[in-house]
């Protein structure tokens, strides 16, 4: 097995060979097919990929929140708790999971409106949550809550006394982000935190997340299909395709020196807004169905680098440079020349 660990740090989270399977009417489908990565306690990792690549399933598995139809078939999710013990989230009992969630690890879902109870004022929901986790000191909860709301640039008195529908989408999302930090978790998972928000609100959320992390120092996992968001907020980026991590690297290496054809393809498909018009190319074909994956590398049918070997033999993540892994037989042939092209002032084909 490869060692996907960053040197000289004890990881907060170590995921090893995780396999998650959905049991459907037409048979079993593996949504996560052997994922491994480490996360340091001060690190921000983005999981990027398109719909159906398994990124949300992976996020839910990290918290033990998988739906009933899903089962963890193998692997470990090793988490280092506050008191230095290492627990395997896969093996926690329901009671232990409840304690784990929110106090150790919180998740902010896409679409913050659905995450609130529409008939309760925000403050009442806060008290409910805190009480469910054994915190009964209302004054302390109030203080903590007001501090967090001010950190996300909201007026605590107004927000706490509002019903969810009285807040705009961007405000709700910021309330959600603030509340996720209420019990001082050390890991927060954000599932598409800015999707469906307009650009100016998106920018505000990005600034809030960045300053919160500086202020409070927690680890973040972002799940997103949005490359620009990963470029903004991630220290490291993992590209997911068909249930696997196909590339994992430091954010600048991944964006400037991608070594997997799929990452490269995604980067070429998303044009930057500023600067001259660059070449924009899409990836041929469409993502495979997890129910009928091709033999060998699942990206091979769409890949311009694919050879017979790729259609036969599924590549595993291997080191291409220190701290940079790619699951491609031909990684050394993959390069991105967009940056050179932008220098020369390119035109498009």
């Amino acid at each position: 097995m490869i060692d996907v660990q960053r040197p000289s740090c004890q990881p907060l989270l170590s995921v090893r060979d995780l396999v998650v399977q959905y049991q459907g009417a037409s048979g079993a489908v593996q949504a996560v097919r052997g994922v491994s990565f480490d996360l340091a306690s001060d690190e921000s990792l983005a999981l990027i990929g398109e719909s159906g690549c398994g990124k949300t399933t992976l996020g839910l598995a990290l918290l033990g929140l998988l739906p009933k139809a899903a089962r963890i078939m193998g692997g470990q999710i090793l988490y280092r708790t506050r008191d230095g013990r290492v627990v395997d989230v896969v093996r926690l009992s329901d009671a232990e999971l409840r304690r784990f969630r929110w106090q150790e690890c919180a998740m902010v879902f896409q679409g913050a409106l659905n995450a609130f109870n529409p008939v309760l004022k925000i403050w009442d929901q806060v008290v409910d949550t805190a009480r469910a986790h054994g915190f009964r000191d209302r004054t302390r909860i109030r203080e903590q809550c007001e501090r967090l709301l001010r950190l996300v640039q909201l007026d605590p008195t107004r927000v706490l006394d509002s019903y969810p529908h009285e807040l705009s989408g961007g405000m709700r999302q910021r309330v959600m982000i603030a509340l996720s930090l209420l019990l001082e978790p050390r890991l927060v998972i954000y599932d598409e935190p800015t999707t469906a928000l307009d650009i100016l609100t998106q920018r505000a959320i990005i600034e809030v997340l960045r300053s919160l992390r500086q202020e409070l120092g927690f680890a973040m996992v972002f799940i997103s299909h949005d490359l620009p968001l990963a470029a903004e907020l991630a220290d490291r980026v993992a590209t997911m395709y068909a249930g696997r991590i196909v590339e994992l690297a430091d954010v600048r290496n991944l964006f400037y020196r991608p070594r997997h054809p799929y990452t490269r393809g995604l980067l070429l498909a998303v044009p930057p807004v500023s600067g001259p018009l660059t070449t924009v190319v899409s990836i041929p074909g469409s993502p495979p169905s997890l129910a009928s994956l091709p033999a060998g590398c699942s990206f091979a049918p769409r890949c311009e680098f694919a050879t017979d070997r790729c259609r036969r033999e599924e590549p595993t993540l291997s080191t291409v440079a220190p701290g940079h892994w790619s699951a491609c037989h031909h990684w050394s042939a993959v390069s991105l020349d967009r940056w050179m092209e932008r220098l020369g002032g390119a035109s498009h084909a």
């Binding site: 650009i199 949005d226 490359l227 620009p228 470029a231 954010v251 930057p272 500023s274």
Partner: peptide, 9 residues
């Protein structure tokens, strides 16, 4: 405000 697919930029 627009995030770009380029970390430095």
């Amino acid at each position: 405000a627009l995030p770009e697919p380029d970390p430095d930029l």
